[in-house]
Design a protein around this nucleic acid. Sequence first.
RNA 1: GGGCAAUUAGCUCAAUGGUAGAGCGACUCGUUUACACCGAGUAGGCCGUAGGUCCGAUUCCUACAUUGCCCACCA
Length: 750
Amino acid sequence: MELDKAYNHETVEDRIYKMWMDSGYFNPDKLPEADKREPFTISLPPPNVTGVLHMGHAFEDTIQDTVIRYQRMKGKRALWVPGTDHAAIATQAKFEKEHYKKQGKSRHDYSRQDFFEMIQEFALANQKGILSQLHKLGLSLDWSRLAFTLDKDRELAVRTAFKQMYEAGLIYRAHRVVNWDVKGQTTVSDDEIEYEETKTKLYTFRYSQDFPIPISTTRPETKVGDTAVAVHPEDSRYQKFIGREFDLEFCNVPLHIKVIADKEVDPAFGTGALGVTPAHSMIDYEIALRHNLPLKPVINEFGKMTVGGALLEGKKTAEARLAVAGWLKNNNLLEKEEDTTQNLSRAQRTGGVIEPLPKLQWFINVNSKFEIRNSKLKSIKDGEKITLKDVMKRVVQNGQIKIMPERFEKIYFHWIDNLRDWCISRQIIYGHQIPVWYKNAGEATGNRQQEIYCDTNPPKGEGWQQDTDTLDTWFSSGLWTFSTLGWPPSAKASEGKLNDLQIYHPTSVMMPGYEILFFWVARMILMSGFLLGDIPFRQVYLHGIVRDKQGRKFSKSLNNGIDPLEMTGKYGTDALRFALVFGAAPGNDVIFDEQKVKGMKHFGNKLWNISRFVLTNLENSKFEIRNSKLEAKGITDADKDILAKLGAAITNVTKNLDNFQLHEAAQEIYQFVWREFADVYLEASKEQMKDKVLAENTKKLLLHILINSIKLLHPFMPFITEELWQKLHEAKLLSKDSILMVSDWPKEHK
RNA sequence: GGGCAAUUAGCUCAAUGGUAGAGCGACUCGUUUACACCGAGUAGGCCGUAGGUCCGAUUCCUACAUUGCCCACCA
């Protein structure tokens, strides 16, 4: 049998992937003696259904596939669950844009139901695209368990979760100041906000000539909504005014201002007095809560003023700001106008300005205690009363969940300490509709009591209307590790037999990018802690971001994206995979370099030619495998040396893979194959095979080293190694393990 | 304002309490049947700066500088 002179990935990859698929072994339940194997589970961070595979996915998925392939070879019941995310806002926005282009119609031209179904259809049609791209990367995902965050099973999970949290009092509905995305016309959570430094003016002025205290602000237009002026309790300048109340007119709007003392106020900033606008500032809202101040909304959902008559009403905030400044000048109230910088809040998804507004929304309470049930959490007893914050904190503190690199644990704790209640309702259509129904919904109808019903199914009877809001996409994502494994278990679950949830959960390791530590990792811990009394995963491996040669993130606006499939087409999937893993330490960003991919293609070819050499020599001499034991006589120093080096390579690759140090494992195997096996031993073997006494051992060793190299390399470069494995079988140099993917991991030498 | 990290060869990055490594690139030589997607070799680093601990520091500690990131939002 002859191998081609060079490895040609194009003729190999699809054929090998099909062979793996046909084997059924991506589903760990199909592995020989599956019941006796120890489970090892990874949940794939689900890519956006409508997204396109980018280098970040390729990196993230390669790391996971490497780990899962390694564990499978180690004999584990290795499950890697695939899925896609409905990415509520992102998907709806994308659909609306495309639909408007094509049809000229917007969401207002359709009923809610129709509009939802159109987006769902769009999403599922797009899903095929991303799934086929995942296949191309050679990922050993169990496609029989494919899930979607917005399908029937996940809907049941979401509704069940909502109901349980609602009944425990952890989900509540309240009128609160929330982050309103003016462009997206929806609320967003604190974590979905980005800050952009902008130049602006700091105005110092008085509301009116009679008002004794000047205040400073960058947003004078909001001051028509002020209900107090706050000063520091120990500020001697303002002592005499504390507690006094003033009625005055500001920009033709009557104001009732109370002077209050609050320690949050910095006496050194501006005039040391802060105009409190409870309805349009998070900070002011909190001050208002402490002092029982009234809320006075003056800006609406479209970012326009709702008071102020001809001067302000109907104007956008930016316009209104200038109008107020002009009014202040005209009335001789402006004392100072200075340049300053300010962090402007924008919605991460839409880029729209965030306007804090008081709205009736749903929240998850992270600070009130609930009784934990069926606790499997270390150091948290069954029935103990604990807050969600504490659950999230404790499981990491006590080491039940390990986050690596470890430095992210500090970042995680810090985030929890600053965490406020999570606003989970969104004013968009695409997503999980809130499973709450109202009767007599008109709140303004006075004496008729509103009825509320929360369950997984609609209530019976007439007159019930479901809440029109949908849930934050991270709510369903938070359930991902267990909603994909049969949670909630059906009542009819077969008795005596373990279900997926019992076998595969908690999952073994979660491997997302560090940028979604808060969004996702923390939310999974929260959800799993409350709903299962358990952790969602034992280990979190946070990987870095893939960047371009200038160190910039890949982004659409920069148009610097590199299609991973273009790279795999050019150099082969194995080459891309190895290049991504090579030198990528946990948590560190990776600079993508095409030259590196090319280099790794060369490495693959090196292995190919080593195999070609071994195959030709062993076949031509009618070599037979009787046993792998070496003859006692005629063992050379070169033989001993390569065996020792192989032993070290096995030990180090194994150790590093166990510790998720993939970059080191990759480096180790690269060095061994090229520098030790090819450069040294293979050259020595040429001479040794000319000697009749030495030839037998040499050939045995060549084969032994080759087989082990192929195995060690398989998790990283699955295609070429599997192809070579098949060639060894064809040449009758192997007698067992017809598929490398499920063969045994090399044993460490003693 | 608070915190985290990085600083090592021309570039991208590892490792490490005891003479510094890889990939890519550069240079020289070499086409003898595994591979030119190659081989043999060479050059290239006071391991950011200054202190400290230690027999010994690139590694541990402190300060500083520069860069990047996260959080807070001084209104």
